[in-house]
Design a binder for these strands. Structure first.
Lengths: 336, 336
DNA sequence: CTGTTAGCGCTTTCAC
DNA sequence: GTGAAAGCGCTAACAG
């Protein structure tokens, strides 16, 4: 059994209140008594019971982080960003990754309104009605990363997917001179995927390039999906000159397909991606892609949340849009 | 303010004790009253306050996970493994990654003996005396992943680094016929690095290949360190035929160096790694490396910990050694 | 400055 | 079956 404040108090011949004050150095305690209390506490290896403190203070200094199925380094970076800011404000983070057996909904229910955490950051490209309902019912501060439709009174941090996709597509067309640009798209119900596709289409449209449906193929945001999609594109009679994959994982899959068919990137076909995940730097040739400041997103979300926790009702919901940038690799080249 | 058990009790015209019973074990509560309580609780959107429950139950169902500086997908997998097992036993996990401003020691102190968590899993290739002291003082259940020297009464999960390094080095020599095998080693104070180097040396020794000091160069376990180390090896008068990098990150760095000098893997020089991180599959040619079942390690650690939490003093410390396997890629080839 | 006294919201004997 | 009451370990008025 751990030492309690009572034992320290009795050994020090003071009341528990004084011990509490001495340790939290709040109000005036005579230096000499404070010192002797500190010494006794140290000798007894006394550590205040956080739970008891939380109960009376009504806060836990813990932030709940609900993530979609964790894979790759994307989430490590989110965690890192959140953790960094959380740490500097003395918060801990509880991570709940989602998977088939634990939907986002469940993690959310566990966190919201049971006073286990002071606030929640949820990342989910798909917010359904069930989730919305839970959010409405609870008054736990919340920040959503990457949500589709803003929910009232909830802070959001979004990636500017549309702009990123538009920019890289236009870069391929205007700067490099590509005319035949294909797109491997992500899951149909995924907001990121939808926005990126929209950016791609808009860029083609604005540059007077007709949209060709057979050059838009689904890849499910996975490496394998990208590989298959790419094979399909390469088997077409009229092949595209460059493939803009909706994310880097699919772009990596494209590399595999291109390699296995004996083609070369970028000589035979160009490849571009989206996300700039850790992996992309190590693909040969280095992938041209859209960079997302992932750590920064985590940090922003954490800042927003902590702000909300501290300011309570006075807090006006903010909606951050994180902009992207193009990483020029060697996977696309100038078309003469 | 969230609904409390009191409000539910008064609305239901019962005592708070009955509400508590109805919601928990349901031990002998008349079905009809139980039902009406449940309905009222639902209507009031009542969620028991976890903190208050923890205080009386003296457990939190939270596991603390202390990790070294998070980067890449290695830690995602550890988290994933721990989380999976933790989840199925109804535990949450608090993640504390370490970095320059928050040493392992601090996270540990925060977790041990303040009843914030029921147990701790710590991953640290370097356990210093300070850490040992904290561990000795506390009676919080603990599992260490990847520790140097076993601490009494603490469960450990270790990677069989020596065996893995030995196996791949011998594979390079015996199966592929390499005679000139260089090694890029990790940090001098890192247990993994030390064991891997030892395995490499032992394999050379057992196969009657003289150890050449200039073919053993430090790479700090980073991609950049690997790149530099490789450049150095390639500038030697007598170059090695193959480089066994102490981890995959350094192997990836080797690829870069080899590429920038105009050489080809594996024709001009072979490369082998250790870890089988996600990235390795996407290096071209695919890296030959030592596979570590990372998720499995996380799972084992979690199982060990939960077991210890539940069995208390009756628990005898266990020491698991996780074995590795060779992934045959295309980065090394048969030497005729 | 310091002690006394209420709780925080819940679980859990112990009676009835 | 159910209620009253005693805490879990701590903080925070309120008195002195």
């Amino acid at each position: 059994m751990a030492t309690t404040i009572k034992e320290v108090a009795s050994k020090a011949n003071v009341s528990i209140a004084t011990v509490s004050r001495a340790l939290n150095d709040g109000s005036k305690v005579r230096p000499s008594t404070k010192e002797s209390i500190l010494i006794i506490a140290e000798k007894l290896n006394y550590k205040p019971n956080i739970i008891a403190r939380n109960l009376v203070k009504k806060n836990t200094s813990i932030i709940g982080l609900v993530l979609p199925e964790i894979q790759g380094d994307f989430f490590t970076d989110i965690i890192k960003g959140v953790d960094e800011v959380a740490y500097s404000s003395k918060y801990h983070i509880i991570v709940a990754s989602s998977h088939s057996e634990r939907p986002v909904v469940e993690s959310l229910m566990n966190f919201m309104g049971r006073s286990m955490v002071d606030g929640v950051i949820i990342m989910s490209p798909l917010i359904n009605d069930r989730i919305k309902e839970i959010i409405k019912k609870s008054d736990t501060p919340l920040v959503i990363i990457d949500c589709v439709s803003p929910i009232e009174n909830v802070d959001t941090v979004n990636i500017d997917n549309f702009q990123g996709a538009y920019a890289i597509t236009e870069y391929l067309i205007k700067n490099l001179g590509y005319k035949k640009v294909a797109h491997v798209e992500g899951p149909a119900n995924n907001n990121d995927a939808i926005q990126r596709k929209a950016g791609y289409i808009e860029a083609l449209y604005k540059n007077n390039i007709p949209i060709k449906q057979e050059w838009i193929v689904p890849g499910g945001f996975t490496s394998d999906g990208g590989r298959l999609a790419c094979s399909r594109l390469l088997s077409l009679i009229e092949k595209p000159e460059v493939i803009f994959a909706g994310n880097d994982m699919m772009a990596a899959g494209c590399y595999k397909a291109i390699d296995s068919l004996g083609f070369k990137v970028p000589d035979d076909i160009g490849v571009a991606g989206f996300d700039d995940i850790f992996l992309s730097e190590f693909l040969t040739p280095r992938l041209t892609t859209v960079h997302i400041p992932i750590i920064e997103i985590g940090k922003s979300a954490a800042r927003l949340l902590i702000n909300k926790i501290k300011n309570g009702k006075d807090h006006k919901p903010k909606h951050l849009k994180v902009s992207t940038g193009i990483i020029v690799g060697e996977s696309c080249k100038f078309q003469k």
